[in-house]
Design a protein around this nucleic acid. Structure first.
Length: 598
DNA sequence: CTAGGGTTAG
């Protein structure tokens, strides 16, 4: 047997390179990609449409649309596949207008769209504001006759249903006139109805559909878990012929959201296959409920099981930590990020800022904020609000003016933070200034949240009449939060008459809240009008159900300690009360006047 | 083209 003749080096290199080209769609490493790009030039292949298409898709999936466009521009007469790849790239990278620009360009160059073009283009249209454009694309499709390919009307149904409540009617219209429907048409329609809140209609279609796959079953499962109907969900779950990891994690998520961590944990343990999403759901669930040991234990297990964290996991767990004040796990997540040299997206940084701020570590929040290269409005809003919440009103307002200087346009969320800062710091005049100029100078129309902040601010400052006048001038109906803020102001300033009026409004809105009646009886008591108290108690008995009392919690060394009013259950209760009494003596000495309470 | 986790507003 003779030895095989070795190919010349350039042939083997070329073969190697061809293998790389074939694997390009899997390539997510931008440096490898750039290497391949260099090879392409070396072998003068950059004008080959096939090679160019591979490169464009690879650059798109690495979110490098500028590089993708460079490749595209090398081609003198791009074919329909190349145009499609560019449209898809822009759509998937949320650059909708550029996707449409390419679509228009291909038409002016006389290249006809094909059945792949529209699903890609439609992906760029999501949200209520796109409905009119989707209708135009729909007309275009009918004109060119591509609705024969089932992919095209299926995408239309999906995208129509994502265009808000009126969009779903267009989805229904299309679904009803479709001659041939496949399982995806049914699934898309059902999930669209579900998103629009038409649950009965969704269930009806589910029962009617000729055959169901796991996606159909999981859609129904998601519908019931989101509605908090865990019994119905479990009925569905039992009937699913082939459960997959999504079926299981939907159930775990449902139990976790309904507050039943025991069942959630039980189901999680039984899951035959656990993926990153499943771990995320269970850890976030425990973290949000403050079940620190469980959450940390599972987080360790997840890291040990060799799964790589992704954006979704990090953001979700951090949000849960922010909710419960679980700084311990939040820090652990931050450490993992740094240990793994995880490249933080803005969303991740923003979640970190929010977590640190809500857990009271403002220094850490500021550190993340300051180290960000390209802050977005969410970063500013989270930081401003974090400072405001902790009473650093001045710093929050300074940050607001810095935001303006750096050319950002504040939005409605920013102003909630700004007004909150004024509120916590007692800056009544500044608050009024921002409230009355937000629309004039920044084009942000005040919403009910902003009115709420203002009424709280005026009320706390004792300007009850002004607060009441603002309530009556509101363009929307005042809600329970508004009246509640006013009632609280009445309590602080012993305004008996106004309190009675406010309570009447509150009872209409939320007849179940005992806390409001308590507040009123406290007001009577503080004003010395003890005659009013039994009356209130009677009304309370007739109209109220007991609300669970509020609790404060703190986490120390992965252990949560919870406290409610008059609580003596903590093992170190005596010492804690001793400290509290000492502190309240101390703050009285430095001038704090406590509010009357009975 | 269809199903599960996801940053800012009390």
């Amino acid at each position: 047997m003779s030895k095989p003749i070795r190919a010349p080096t350039w042939v083997s290199r070329r073969r190697l390179f061809e293998d790389k080209l074939w694997a390009l769609h899997k390539c997510t490493n931008i440096n490898h990609l750039k290497q391949v790009h260099a090879f392409v030039y070396k072998f003068n292949l950059h004008k080959d449409p096939f090679v160019a298409r591979k490169l464009i898709s690879a650059f798109s999936s690495c979110r490098q649309m500028v590089l993708a466009l460079n490749v595209f521009n090398q081609i003198e007469e791009p074919n329909v596949h190349l145009y499609n790849s560019m449209i898809r790239g822009y759509s998937e990278n949320f650059q909708s207008s550029l996707a449409f620009a390419i679509f228009f360009e291909m038409q002016s160059c006389g290249v006809l769209p094909d059945n792949f073009t529209y699903p890609f283009l439609l992906k760029a249209c999501c949200g209520q504001s796109w409905l009119e454009i989707v209708k135009m694309v729909h007309t275009h499709i009918e004109k060119f006759g591509f609705s024969a390919d089932i992919f095209v009307p299926n995408s239309l149904i999906d995208i129509y249903a994502k265009c808000g409540s009126s969009g779903v009617n267009y989805a229904k219209g299309l679904f009803n006139v479709m001659v041939e429907r496949d399982i995806v048409s049914w699934n898309s329609m059902i999930s669209g109805l579900m998103r629009a809140g038409e649950l009965d209609e969704a269930r009806k279609l589910f029962d009617e559909m000729p055959e169901r796959d796991t996606i159909s079953w999981n859609t129904m499962l998601g519908m019931y878990t989101k509605a908090g109907e865990m019994n119905m969900a479990f009925e569905i779950f039992k009937k699913i012929p082939e459960r997959n990891v999504v079926s299981w994690s939907t159930m775990v998520s449902g139990y976790s959201k309904s507050g039943d961590m025991q069942l959630a944990g039980l189901l999680f343990d039984k899951m035959p296959v656990k993926n990153l999403v499943a771990w995320t759901i269970i850890i976030s669930g425990y973290a949000e409920k403050g079940l620190a040991k469980k959450a940390i234990g599972l987080y360790d297990q997840m890291e040990k099981s060799g799964l790589n964290l992704d954006d979704g996991t990090i953001i979700s767990i951090l949000a849960a930590c922010a909710e419960s004040g679980f700084l311990g796990l939040g820090k652990r997540v931050h450490e993992s990020i740094e240990k793994n040299k995880f490249k933080c997206s803005n969303q991740v940084c923003n979640a970190l800022i929010d977590m640190y701020a809500k857990c009271g570590s403002l220094d850490a929040a500021l550190r993340v904020f300051n180290e960000m290269k390209k802050r977005d409005l969410v970063s500013w809003n989270a930081m401003i609000h974090g400072l405001a919440m902790h009473g650093h009103g001045k710093k929050a307002l300074q940050l607001f003016s810095r935001l303006n200087k750096e050319g950002f346009a504040p939005d409605e969320v920013t102003f909630v933070g700004v007004l909150c800062a004024c509120n916590h710091a007692g800056f009544i005049d500044e608050g009024k200034h921002y409230f009355y100029t937000m629309e004039r100078d920044y084009g942000v129309v005040p919403e009910i949240e902003h009115y709420g902040c203002m009424i709280d601010l005026l009320g706390r400052g004792g300007r009850l009449k002004e607060a009441l006048r603002l309530v009556h001038s509101m363009p929307v109906e005042p809600n329970a939060i508004i009246w509640g803020a006013l009632l609280e102001a009445c309590r602080m300033h012993n305004a008996v008459g106004l309190a009675e009026e406010v309570l009447n409004h509150l009872v209409e809105l939320e007849p179940t809240d005992a806390g409001d009646f308590n507040t009123l009886s406290n007001i009577y008591a503080a004003a010395g009008e003890w005659g009013g108290v039994p009356n209130v108690r009677l009304r309370m008995k007739n109209t109220c159900t007991q609300k669970p009392s509020g609790a404060s919690s703190i986490e120390l060394d992965a252990e949560f300690h919870e406290f409610t009013v008059m609580d003596t259950s903590h093992p170190k209760s005596d010492g804690i009360y001793e400290m509290v009494n000492g502190l309240s003596q101390h703050i009285k000495q430095v001038g704090y006047v406590p509010v009357a309470c009975c």
